[in-house]
Amino acid sequence: MTTPAMARASRPAGAPDEDTVIDVRDLRMSYGTNQVLTGVNFTARRGEVLVLLGPNGAGKTTTIEILEGFRMRSAGQVGVLGADPAKAGEDWRARTGVVLQSWRDHGRWKVRTLLANLARHYEPYATPSRRRPYDVAELIEMVGLGEQATAKLSTLSGGQRRRLDVAIGIVGRPELLFLDEPTAGFDPHARRDFHDLVHRLSDLEDTTILLTTHDLDEAEKLADRVLILAGGQIVADGSADELARQVTRDAQVRWSRNGERYVHATPDATAFVRDLFAQYGDEVDDLEVRRATLEDTYITLVRSHETGHPDEAADAFAGLEVSDR
């Protein structure tokens, strides 16, 4: 292994450095004659939370399974933690975490026993900077299964099982974590806990996270960057704010005056509101300024794909500068 400093020095500018955790170039996948992915490109940097969105059948799961090393791609280059997942070995596996959607496996096992046994698989892969695995008791508390620690898996509710899935996914203290629809079936409380956990992993552990979801509100809360997969390609790549501004720079200003309601779209809502007050003062009531949400963006983009103008939408976002944070 080269030291990080050497690796940094030997890389030409612009090439992926050791902070690039995922590097996908022109990834293609077809099942028979059905082309699911027709050229996917994106990168992820250390500690980033990426949320992959897209309509059903767009290839989100296919993409994530290729990156996990669970599925062979048809063509293209894929680098995950500096290796090709199709060929990577057990050392690589130890650095990744996968949150699986279980349903009835290990029904006779107790929560703590299963987690402890799986945790032991990571013991040989500890490094001075990354203690592996997590302390099992601590992790059980962290995902909120303290009271179920000695319960059999077959007695867990759907939400409790998902919490255990998450615990198993992160027990090896992964540098990169994959989650395919992790919060499906979570109640609002469990969802909030899960969001806290994701923030904690990315902030404190510097874990890079790639997750898919259908919950756009969740995507907006969690994502450093949102990727929208449609028509077999990434059609949008940026923070939720950047994407929203790309679809429309206008904000909607609503207010009422003398019992009548008004709506006005403007790129500079602050200036408009200042003028509004200067002109009407106390008469202005029920003021509301609303920017385009991720949901507006998503619907607009996906619709433009489904109506057969994919190039238009892709062009609209081609100019988008994705800031390297």
Binding site: E90, L100, H106, H121, Y122, G169
Partner: peptide, 9 residues
């Protein structure tokens, strides 16, 4: 699949 997802599982 769980076994496959951990190193040398």
């Amino acid at each position: 699949l769980r076994a496959k997802a951990v190193p040398r599982g």
